[in-house]
Design a protein around this nucleic acid. Structure first.
Lengths: 195, 195
DNA sequence: GATATATTTGAACAATCGCTCAATTATTTT
DNA sequence: AAAATAATTGAGCGATTGTTCAAATATATC
């Protein structure tokens, strides 16, 4: 009795994410978005409600992407610390060539938005916290495998990693020499607060 | 033969800086700016040429503000390391209550802008590098005073500090508990790569 | 094939964007 | 006081913003 053929929602969100990730919230217009996801305004507003709705879906998709990648690295590696190090190298180094922006989209959003967009800001903050919690979980696992001393507080170490990643990614955008960054990542787990 | 009474350029730039610092480049409109600095479009364009011109002047003023603050802290303190630590505590902790944004305006700009604004991006990057160089200079001084081992590379330590500050300031925006951050700052100079 | 209905389209809305410039105002020199 | 000129004003430019909705289209049911 009705028409069912719809666009590929997942593909649409992926394209929207790539555009928002590159340009940020304010610099991305609905017309930019329409072109990037190949949908007319009516369809976008029927599916997402507003520009904010698309951005929110993008933030959630981006966070899911990161968490999935971390899981995959954990499966591929025999060591939780190696998985963490691989993740950090990927987001800090590899993302410079492959990703829409070398910045973390969540950190970029937290940096860009003010309390004028409380919900979007909250989504970004919560997503960052989710990633941090996943870090902590891997650190607990590493402690069980004696890769990290059991006296350390996993949440504290996870927070430390988040801070390092954010700092490193912003710095990566200011510099074209990855040498020092790779060295810093390699040494991350060899000193305080990990050792 | 002519009219000379002009607005206070320094005050105008200061007001513009505070607005741009809070809202970022794209979210700040020329009308927002007109209200904040109490000037009509004609005067603004006569003095700064464009929205980008005002932003550039703001970036430069912001950088100057930071460098001056660092100098003042150095004069007030007998120790270069104490000056550095004081600077970091101020920008990470105190700025949450006092400043237009707890974010570093330069890092925020680097995070927000793309190659669509190459000149503004370059100004922000260069300003960050200037601050980093100032850090390095204080570290050299600290080495002379035996506060830091002379085998350490000042530029490497300065870069490390920049990365820590950026990471800490973004994290501060996601969290309302400063305890862990203050502890991290206090311990910054007690471990690798400083010791 | 006709009907019903969900989906998709794209022109167009009011508001706002960065910016221009003729007109007005204020100050200095004569 | 008059003339000269720089500074300031603010209405308004064309373009773009986020969003709406009547019309057109495509699919499922009968």
């Amino acid at each position: 009795m009705s028409k069912k053929a719809k666009f590929d929602r997942q593909q649409v969100i992926e394209n929207a994410t790539n555009l928002y990730w590159e340009k940020g919230y304010h610099a991305t217009s609905m017309r930019n978005l329409q072109d990037a996801i190949d949908l007319r305004p009516g369809s976008i507003y029927a599916e997402f409600g507003s520009k904010d709705g698309v951005f929110k879906a993008s933030l959630e998709h981006y966070a899911e992407l990161g968490l999935t990648e971390l899981e995959n690295l954990r499966i591929q590696s025999s060591s939780p610390v190696e998985a963490l190090k691989g993740f950090i190298k990927q987001v800090v180094i590899d993302s410079q060539n492959e990703a829409p922006s070398c910045m973390c989209m969540l950190a970029k959003t937290v940096a860009e938005l003010t309390d004028d967009q409380p919900e979007l800001l909250s989504v970004a903050k919560n997503a960052l916290k989710s990633v941090e919690n996943q870090f902590a979980q891997l650190i607990v696992e590493a402690q069980k495998k004696k890769e990290i001393g059991k006296s350390k507080d996993p949440q504290e170490l996870a927070r430390f990693l988040q801070i390092q990643i954010t700092g490193l990614r912003v710095y990566a955008k200011t510099s074209d020499d990855n040498g020092p960054l790779e060295k810093m990542i390699d040494e991350l787990f060899d000193h305080h607060p990990f050792q």
